[in-house]
Design a protein around this nucleic acid. Structure first.
Length: 184
DNA sequence: ATAGCGATGTTCT
DNA sequence: GAACATCGCTATA
């Protein structure tokens, strides 16, 4: 059992800060794009009023109930795809939303997908678009697909705070990001 | 620099 | 109908 498998088998709140600094490696459509994760948010199961799984299973959130290491992709505001990594044992819904990254490889591909050269992955919709992630990946596995996770956790300072765009459950500091640096 | 708003799928009231 | 785990354009300062 690898470190990563153990991490995703546990609570999303524990996994979210330890996913920071790792590289998300995409070979979607045969093009290599890598992004270092710099911002995440945790969504726990039925007790979390901000989670898509709050209130039970639906067609959209079904992937959240899958094996840890599953990929959950949903459409936000009818426009953008957002990428989550599923945590906890099958049947217990929890996931970490990957909110932002810094492209470290395949910048040309990312820029082409984004239709611009700046802000390539500074937001959940942008990150997914830069990596080529779409709803086609929903329910697939991180262990055997075109999307992988590599590298080690962020060694620097990690900041916590309330989740973004959430009205219920705002009191929980389940958003994590690396300390901002000038190179971003 | 900041604010407002349109786009638009899925879920909930 | 309304709200949303968003983004990018447009308008005002």
């Amino acid at each position: 059992m690898t470190v990563l498998r153990r991490l995703l088998a546990g609570p999303a709140v524990a996994a979210a800060p330890l996913l920071l600094g790792r590289r998300l490696v995409s070979t979607i459509d045969g093009a290599l794009v890598e992004a270092v994760i710099i911002e995440t948010e945790a969504y726990e199961g039925v007790d979390d009023p901000a989670s898509h799984a709050f209130g039970g299973r639906t067609a959209r959130n079904a992937a959240m109930f899958g094996e840890p290491g599953s990929i959950y992709v949903y459409r936000s505001h009818g426009v953008h795809w957002c990428l989550n990594l599923v945590c906890r044992a099958a049947g217990i819904p929890a996931a970490v939303l990957l909110r932002a990254g810094r492209i470290v490889s395949g910048e040309e591909v990312a820029a082409r997908r984004r239709g611009r050269a700046t802000e390539l992955a500074s937001g959940p919709g942008r990150l997914a678009q830069a990596l080529g992630v779409t709803g086609a990946l929903d329910g697939s596995s991180l262990w055997a697909g075109p999307l992988r996770l590599e590298g080690n956790p962020w060694r620097g300072e990690v900041l916590g705070g309330p989740r973004v765009g959430v009205t219920r459950g705002r009191d929980l500091p389940w958003r994590f990001r690396v300390k901002p640096s000038v190179s971003d």
